[in-house]
């Protein structure tokens, strides 16, 4: 006997694709399933936090053709280490972002080292702009990240997260797993170094001067 549908909701299509279950009885069940390595919980983790992690990685690393792979690595690391997660779903995002920042730092350091020993090695390829993008902005972004490439990894991350991502200081400290005063010190050094380097780039210098002019 088929049970009668009581509402106006149409019946599900017989051939409809079953989405990986984006639903758990409560958040603690979701966390427990994630820690147990259940694939439905893992899919849900990606569904909830993919955009944020992609944004953080993008803003720290710049326009990188490997971005999707890098974000994938972050989630794989999170899934592998999920059994050690001690928080609730409220701080799950901060935890994943922490992993993203840690991964980004490793990647930046490896790339810097690689470039130091193989100076001819090209910088990571930037994605191609399209005609719908403002080319001036694209150029400015490329130049800003070229300057970021010259900063030490920890300073670059602190600066990118506060300047581009507009993350609050305490959140940056949490993501970098250091104290707020350490972040403040890093930011101070990073700002000084960044502003010194920007002077050598004519486009960024002009942009800066134009901004100064507009402010006046």
């Amino acid at each position: 006997m088929r049970l009668r549908s009581e509402t106006d909701a149409p019946a599900a299509d017989a051939g409809a694709k079953l989405y990986s279950p984006a639903f758990f009885r409560d958040e603690s069940e979701f966390i427990a399933a994630l820690k147990a390595g259940r694939s439905d919980a893992q899919a849900e983790l990606v569904r909830r936090h993919y955009k944020r992690v992609a944004a953080v990685m993008h803003r720290v690393l710049g326009d990188d053709t490997d971005l999707e792979d890098v974000v994938q690595d972050v989630f794989v690391k999170a899934m592998l280490g999920a059994h050690a997660f001690r928080g609730t779903s409220e701080n799950l995002e901060a935890w994943v972002v922490g992993i993203a920042v840690f991964s980004a730092r490793g990647l930046i350091r490896r790339r810097t080292l690689w470039r130091r020993f193989f100076s001819a090695a090209p910088a990571p390829e930037a994605a191609e702009p399209t005609h719908t993008t403002n080319l001036e902005d694209v150029d400015a972004v490329r130049r800003i990240y070229a300057v970021f490439d010259k900063l030490p990894a920890d300073e670059r991350i602190a600066l990118a997260l506060t300047l581009i991502d507009q993350m609050a200081l305490h959140q940056v400290a949490l993501a970098c797993n250091v104290s707020s005063s350490t972040i403040k010190r890093r930011l101070k050094k990073a700002r000084k170094r960044f502003e010194g380097l920007v002077r050598f780039d004519p486009v960024l210098r002009e942009l800066s001067e134009r901004e100064h002019h507009d402010d006046e």
Partner: peptide, 8 residues
């Protein structure tokens, strides 16, 4: 800058 990255 953020919009340029987000658009990308």
């Amino acid at each position: 800058i953020r919009d340029t990255l987000d658009a990308a």
